[in-house]
Design a protein around this nucleic acid. Structure first.
Lengths: 360, 360
DNA sequence: TTGTAAGCGTTATCAA
DNA sequence: TTGATAACGCTTACAA
């Protein structure tokens, strides 16, 4: 063994610049502490499975040699990477997702896990790469902040066998535990808020076609509209995709209408904000002429004009909850609930007010 | 060798659920293709160092067995993780940093690198963890989006020897290549814009005390003020830290003033937006009574009231530039420039207008 | 409680 | 061009 080590050292010295000193390995620490490598390993991983004196000696040697265990070797041997992958669908809505990510990060940091960012749409072939990470054992689990699980040639992150949890949406793969909010109820609350203030002619500002959240929110909108007995010809629908530009487009369409709705249910704050800005520029007053309700509860809603009435999502908790469920699955502790539903809340500000009969 | 393999298989079967099939290893592929493991490895890593027929056979076996190389083993042997660490100081200003991160992600994805997120302030002990990642060989390089390099007990990411590049600021560690914008010139442009429109009484809405960018911006502000010969008693200073709440606080302080500046130079868009909202609520008109210029150029500036005149930072390019420099360092291709300076640009909107002599 | 030694799954060296 | 084999640095049975 000592022969092997000597050889290794020699090899290294050839490769490195002379001034640079080789990184300490576990064998160096063992030698310095006068114990075996097994004991060093134990002293670091299970401090109480080793005698106090021994542990002290080992730790002293670790400090003296500035030793840090090699992650790759540890992973290879232990079969776990202590890393999770976070898959994000689009870099849209950063103000919304950043807070979900922070929740994930806090929980994972506390558990000693690293967080790998996986953007689905950054570059061609990235999806295959993400799948390979899962199959290559590079990550112990994945959090999906999207409704599609990365896949390539029939292989998906799911089929690699690592645990997964989706956040904010259910995925296209069955049996993946999901943490979501009560989209339908939230959208009903938005709609009811407007109807309750006398609005009888409403518009729905939609998310992307077929999007998980949009489907549910739209259902909530229609249910509430039906419950209030509003006339179908008094209901408008604007396409959108949650971002600013689609809010502008919807606003421009709105301005072209002969008969305009007096209440608008938007499915994101960004769209609501851009919509308001656009119609106000067109001479429409908010909320006097038109009331607008947003969705998400990003920080910004307080600072636009007028401050936006919106649905506040528990963004941080979405992240922490999903992360904790994933950790449970990784540790094999528990069967995760297939669906965890957190509650959003209507936050009343200044963008929605009573309907005036003269408005239409 | 075949004996070893058989043994391994047996061990595995004991650990796994019966239905689950063991993951294919390189030896399985080699056997299936009738070649050695070395050839499989070569066929995958250096396709042209292997005969066409052989390669085809290997790739067929890879597909048939659904083989993905184990990352940890590869890293351990090859001594490289193809992973970089991105260190973020605070989860503040997500609208700004998200676009920088996207730039990083695109470049790293293209180069086949994974991106590990390292939040400095998520949890106690996270800094030590990040340092260990560097020392443990878990990352091949680091991008620092902060002005402090993570350190613990005198060890820093820098002292681990991995290449580093900082973005948006220079770090406290010397000789780390930095990609920044011309903060001083940008702030001079903000200030000049106001002075050019007749404003003689100005306020500076600051970033955190001692912050790299704030120091430079403040220098730019003072230089321009001095060049215009403005009276010191006509210059105001509001503390801030780039986020919404400090903009609100500054706005409240502003409203208490007997004599008010007519032009405000803000060092972030968030502060500018919150400041505007606050003083408008206090009856001040923007830009008629007070002109405000922001800094960053986040998407939002178009949708607040009034649309914010601001400095547009090349956020995406900050990310891509830094990432490319880091890749160069990792590959040992080039000596990186110590400082790469990108240019910000004044974007005129509606929040800054001519001074009216009656205003003061 | 501690030590011995066998892998973990690759890649790289060297020889054929 | 290909194959045999020795590392890479660590953890963990198993033995002492």
């Amino acid at each position: 063994m000592s022969r092997t080590t000597a050889k290794t050292r020699a090899t290294r010295k050839q490769r490195r610049a002379p001034a640079e000193q080789a990184k300490a390995r576990i064998a160096d620490v063992a030698r310095a502490a006068g114990v075996s490598t097994a004991t060093v390993s134990r002293a670091l991983t299970f401090p109480d499975r080793v005698q106090d004196v021994t542990r002290e000696r080992v730790l002293a040697a670790v400090r003296a040699l500035d030793y840090t265990p090699n992650t790759a070797a540890r992973q290879l041997r232990a079969g776990s990477s202590r890393t999770v992958l976070v898959v994000v669908n689009k870099r849209r809505n950063p103000p919304f997702f950043s807070e979900v990510l922070r929740g994930i990060d806090v929980v994972m940091a506390q558990a000693g896990y690293a967080v790998l960012m996986g953007n689905l749409d950054s570059v061609d072939g990235r999806e295959e790469y993400l799948v390979d990470l899962a199959f290559g054992g590079h990550v112990d689990g994945a959090l999906i902040l999207a409704s599609t699980v990365p896949s390539h040639n029939g292989r998906t992150i799911a089929s690699s066998g690592i645990p997964m949890v989706s956040i904010c949406a259910e995925t296209d793969v069955p049996d993946v535990p999901a943490v979501v909010i009560d989209d339908e109820a939230c959208c009903r609350a938005q709609t009811r808020h407007l109807i309750g203030m006398g609005h009888r002619c409403l518009a729905y500002l939609a998310g992307p076609q077929g999007n998980y959240n949009d489907v549910r929110r739209h259902a909530g909108f229609r249910a509430e509209v039906a419950a209030a007995g509003l006339a179908p010809e008094d209901i408008f629908y604007f396409e959108g995709n949650y971002d600013f530009t689609s809010g502008v487009a919807a606003g421009e369409d709105f301005l072209k209408l002969d008969r305009r709705p007096t209440g608008v249910v938007a499915t994101s704050d960004e769209m609501a904000i851009a919509f308001m800005k656009t119609i106000r520029r067109g001479g429409v007053r908010v909320p006097e002429d038109v009331s607008v309700v947003g969705f998400d509860g990003i920080e910004l809603v307080d600072f636009v004009e007028p401050a936006l009435t919106t649905i506040r999502q528990p963004r941080f908790e979405l992240g922490t909850t999903g992360a904790n469920i994933l950790l449970g699955l990784i540790r094999g502790e528990q069967a995760a609930p297939r669906l965890t539903i957190l509650k959003g809340q209507l936050d009343k500000r200044d963008s929605a007010g009573p309907a005036h009969s003269a408005d239409i």
